[in-house]
Simulated assay, not measured.
Amino acid sequence: MEKLDTSLAINASMEAGKKIMDAVQAEMDAVACFQIDDGLYEQLTVNTYLKMFAKLSATSTKNLGEIEKKYSVSAIRKKKIKQLNNIQKRLVSLADKVHIIV
């Protein structure tokens, strides 16, 4: 199977999603799968959430502004995660993973 330089999003139930992923994995070397709700702390603000992950990963919080800009969460930094839409939650989730590799 030829590799594509694109991404695909599928909105499905957990059961259907697992079947789809099993079928795709049978055809591909590596597949990344993200769930929309992957355990974000809904009661925290975006900024507090990112600071918490920075501390957990022993990463400096001085680059937090850059990370917020890079993942387009600067404008929502004071909002609670439970108030965000699915796309914004995904951006926050991606931004928190940056702390581990920064």
Rank of each mutant, 00 (worst) to 15 (best):
A9I: 15
A9E: 15
I10F: 05
N11M: 09
N11R: 13
N11K: 12
A12G: 08
A12L: 10
A12C: 12
A12V: 11
A12P: 00
A12D: 06
S13I: 04
S13K: 07
S13G: 09
S13M: 07
M14N: 12
M14H: 08
M14A: 14
E15R: 10
E15L: 11
E15G: 08
E15K: 09
E15Y: 05
E15W: 05
A16G: 02
A16V: 08
G17N: 05
G17H: 05
G17V: 03
G17M: 06
K18Q: 12
K18D: 09
K19P: 00
K19H: 08
K19S: 09
K19I: 06
I20Y: 03
I20Q: 04
I20G: 04
I20D: 06
M21W: 01
M21F: 02
D22A: 10
D22P: 04
D22Y: 01
A23R: 02
A23N: 06
A23M: 05
A23P: 02
V24Q: 03
V24C: 04
V24D: 01
V24G: 04
Q25P: 01
A26C: 06
A26E: 04
A26F: 02
A26Y: 00
A26Q: 07
E27D: 05
E27T: 07
E27A: 11
M28C: 15
M28N: 14
D29F: 00
A30C: 14
A30R: 14
V31A: 07
V31Y: 02
A32L: 15
A32Y: 14
C33L: 13
C33P: 03
C33D: 11
F34W: 15
F34R: 12
F34L: 13
F34D: 09
F34N: 10
Q35L: 13
Q35A: 12
Q35G: 10
Q35P: 03
I36P: 02
I36S: 09
D38H: 07
D38Y: 00
G39L: 06
G39E: 04
G39H: 08
G39V: 08
L40M: 12
L40P: 00
L40E: 03
L40Y: 00
Y41Q: 12
E42Q: 14
E42R: 10
E42N: 10
E42D: 12
Q43G: 08
Q43L: 08
Q43Y: 10
Q43D: 12
Q43H: 14
L44I: 04
L44M: 15
T45D: 07
T45K: 06
V46C: 01
V46H: 01
V46L: 07
V46A: 00
V46D: 00
V46F: 00
N47Q: 15
N47L: 14
T48H: 05
T48D: 15
Y49W: 11
Y49V: 06
Y49K: 07
L50K: 00
L50W: 03
L50D: 01
K51Y: 03
K51M: 10
K51W: 02
K51P: 04
K51S: 11
M52R: 06
M52L: 15
F53W: 11
F53S: 00
F53H: 09
A54S: 11
A54C: 11
